[in-house]
């Protein structure tokens, strides 16, 4: 009983014991703008993978099995024979460690699913699907299949555009010119606008921003997300306790 109460507290307003096709479809619909604009990222990755000397099969295996933007772009910088396998794995860990925290914030919801559905969904837990799932949770409409549905749409976009970029090969127009690199930052800001609670959020967010900005300058990779997130959450928890 106690466990249920605590989990509901954590989960906010919604429960997600269900795992429905309509939940997956909603996820895909919500992810659609990101999947379409994300085609540009995959095209660029495909082009660069070819330049780095990968075969088409290797580029597709990487996009299909790793399924992450940043770590793959970083890996291209290390993709020189003989391949530094340990360094590649370690860099991927640094870049991806933030997902541990993202998973933890949604665990109360997905913990109610069967292990197969939960750990199947985990493959599709990206910055994008996590951010979209947060919003559904706030609306009280987060279905257990939402992440998998949204993740599949983004996965398809990523893999197909990787192949397209690899085969097209020629240099592409800069996606930044069209502002397409700003879809995700704009999504993050829009989500934050809905989460703002005045003074209660001012201190944790201020600390998160300050720590992230400092860490972005001082540390490699994406450590800044992890450190900023932890610092902000700790400050928030300490303030709540007072």
């Amino acid at each position: 009983m106690r466990e249920t109460i605590t989990r509901d507290e954590l989960a906010g307003d919604a429960e997600a014991a269900t795992f429905t096709a309509s939940g997956a479809l909603l996820g895909a619909r919500r992810a659609l703008p990101l999947a379409i604009t994300g085609l540009a990222d995959g095209l660029v990755f495909g082009v660069l993978a070819r330049q780095a000397g990968m075969s088409l099969g290797e580029a597709l295996l990487m996009s299909g099995a790793v399924n992450t933007g940043t770590a793959q772009f970083v890996a291209l910088g290390l993709w020189v024979a003989p391949l530094p396998v340990v360094a590649l794995a370690a860099t991927t860990l640094v870049v991806g460690a933030r997902h541990l925290l993202m998973g933890a914030t949604l665990a109360a919801h997905l913990g109610r699913l069967s292990p197969l559905r939960r750990y199947g969904s985990a493959f599709f837990l990206t910055d994008e699907t996590w951010a979209l799932a947060l919003r559904e949770r706030a609306l009280g409409t987060l279905d257990g299949a939402f992440i998998m549905g949204g993740g599949l749409a983004l996965f398809a976009s990523w893999v197909v555009s990787t192949a397209g970029g690899y085969l097209a090969g020629a240099s592409l127009r800069d996606p930044a010119r069209w502002g397409l690199d700003f879809v995700f930052p704009a999504l993050v800001v829009a989500l934050l606008a809905g989460m703002w609670r005045g003074r209660a959020t001012l201190a944790p967010w201020g600390v998160a921003a300050a720590v992230a900005l400092a860490a972005a300058v001082l540390l490699p990779g994406k450590w800044y997300i992890l450190l900023g997130g932890i610092a902000g959450a700790v400050v928030g928890a300490l303030r709540d306790a007072d």
């Binding site: 507290e9 997902h99 951010a131």
Partner: peptide, 29 residues
């Protein structure tokens, strides 16, 4: 993240931290 949090009811302090985590992570991003 799912695995670490499986089944265990988080302490009040941890629950509070996890409540603040999404906003803090988004700001840090």
């Amino acid at each position: 993240g799912f695995w670490l949090m499986r089944g265990l009811p988080p302490s009040r302090r941890l629950a509070a931290a996890l409540r603040h985590m999404p906003g803090a992570l988004l700001v840090a991003i």
